[in-house]
Design a protein around this nucleic acid. Structure first.
Length: 431
RNA sequence: UCCCCAGUAGCUCAGUUGGCAGAGCAGGUGGCUGUUAACCACCGGGGCCGCGGUUCGAGUCCGUGCUGGGGAGCCA
């Protein structure tokens, strides 16, 4: 039998196999020695016994350091005493490299130290579990759209101007005479795409140069943004609910072990079934005020306010029709109540904040032109965006889901920085 | 940008009213007949983030700068 991965080890009971991996730690007692091996699919203990195992192997045990890379060959043996139920009785070890003293010891470390060693921290079981959940979240989201006839239409990352005109952007030099900006949303491009393909989505990184120092912010994060032609606010509210339900189902189905390892309370996630509560901005303000907070109508919710509203429900909550003043220029106003926009945010439970923001877009070219002017955006940069309304404009709507906040919520993380392999934060660009 | 907290060994921290710097983990050595972040014993290792003060004497007090963490605003 040749090379096998640890996740499949149960299929090879009493057979000889080779496992390639890294030494997470070792321990010994009298005549027995254990090597705990990790290969990315799991961990297993490799056992050496004095008098039974080759002396060369026993000598080698002494030299092996944490994270040394090895190919261990031996017989798979079912044993109740072994974590995971199986161990390998070692017959030979091929050392690829004896690792230098590994900085991350099997003990508690501070966040700053771990972030400086993010490239190594990824090897720990906790980070492994989180990033496996992240994969499942992304996979579920893509499948959700693919299965419903959406076309993947990725948006550019280098853009000529602000997409929304609100947040601070990263500016870069573009061949000397021009400036480019890192995209803060693919949405405007998806609107053009929806007029070409009907239903589209993009999935990519977005960038915000805001100097935010909170557990909910990254300067680089990933969004999945669907956009649909001939659609209204109600349509995308249903779509947003369906997406989140599909993500939770997929994670509960394929990543239970990881969630368990993270100590996540699964009952909180199992509650996430449709229908989600839907409240208007007006009702949400009432909830905040009933909780004793002073919040005038017309303002956006602060972090504390969001938590009050989300704690009011045990599922994600959809809040629609915010005051138009607080929202981006491209939002369509409610024809019945022009002071509010046809928009929706979804707040995750347990205080994890806004994971989705979207709504129906302004489809009238004249009104959109006025809004661009009012927002003091450079008209020439938005000429193409107006074109989308000049040639067969239709009602359309969409939203964006923030991957890291979603992963943070599902995993029950303290901070979104653990929900992305290499987080970019204010004052943190390394590694 | 503002507010709060911290900066002592490779790592996590302790350090009394200012009085020759300490523990655990990691590393090294030895022991232990199956361990579960094994355990036990011993060993090496820092002069306390930088600068400037107060003092006979400063990790300990004061000022300032830098770095990190948390939060606000803004947002996904």
């Amino acid at each position: 039998m040749g090379k096998v991965t640890i996740d499949t080890i149960g299929k090879y009971d009493n057979q000889d196999v080779t496992v390639c991996g890294w030494l997470t730690h070792k321990r010994s007692s009298g005549r027995i020695r254990f090597l705990v091996l990790r290969d990315g699919t799991g961990t297993i203990q490799a056992t050496c016994i004095k008098g039974e195992t080759d002396n060369q192997v026993l000598d080698l045990y002494q030299e092996l350091t944490q994270e040394s890379s090895l190919a261990v060959t031996g017989t798979v043996h079912r044993d109740k005493r072994a974590p995971g139920g199986y161990e390998i009785l070692v017959s030979s070890i091929e050392v690829l490299q004896i690792a230098e003293t590994y900085p991350i010891a099997p003990k508690e470390h501070g966040v700053g130290f771990l972030m400086d060693h993010r490239h190594l921290w990824l090897r720990s079981s906790r980070q492994h579990a989180i990033l496996r959940v992240r994969h499942a979240v992304i996979n579920a989201a893509r499948n959700f759209f693919d299965d419903q006839g959406f076309t993947l239409l990725d948006a550019p990352i280098l853009t000529p101007s602000s997409c929304e005109g609100t947040t601070t952007l990263f500016e870069i030099d573009y061949f000397g005479d021009k400036k480019a900006f890192l995209s803060q949303s693919g949405q405007l491009y998806m609107e053009a795409g929806a007029m070409a393909f009907g239903k589209v989505y993009c999935f990519g990184p977005t960038f915000r140069a805001e100097k935010s120092k909170t557990r909910r912010h990254l300067t680089e994060f990933w969004m999945i943004e669907p956009e649909i032609a001939f659609a209204d606010l109600e349509t995308v509210m249903k779509l947003a609910e369906g997406l989140v339900v599909a993500i939770i189902e997929e994670v509960l189905q394929t990543r239970k072990e990881e969630l368990h390892q993270l100590g996540r309370d699964l009952t909180r996630l199992e509650q996430v079934r449709p229908p989600f509560p839907v409240v208007s901005y007006d009702e949400a303000v009432q909830i905040v005020q009933d909780a004793g907070e002073s919040m005038p109508w017309g303002e956006d919710f602060g972090g504390a306010h969001e938590t009050i509203v989300s704690n009011h429900f045990d599922k994600p909550v959809l809040i629609h029709r915010y005051p138009a003043e607080t929202k981006a220029f491209y939002m369509k106003n409610d024809p019945d109540r022009p002071e509010v926009a046809l928009c929706v945010d979804m707040l995750a439970p347990e205080g994890y904040g806004e994971i989705i923001g979207g709504g129906q877009r302004e489809d009238d070219p004249a009104l959109l032109g006025q809004k661009i002017e009012k927002a003091e955006l450079p008209a020439e940069d938005f000429a193409w965006y107006l074109d989308v309304r000049r040639y067969g404009s239709v009602p359309h709507a969409g939203f964006g889901l923030g991957i890291e906040r979603t992963v943070g919520w599902i995993c029950g993380l303290e901070h979104v920085r653990e929900s992305i392999p290499f987080p970019r934060l204010l004052d943190r660009l390394y590694p």
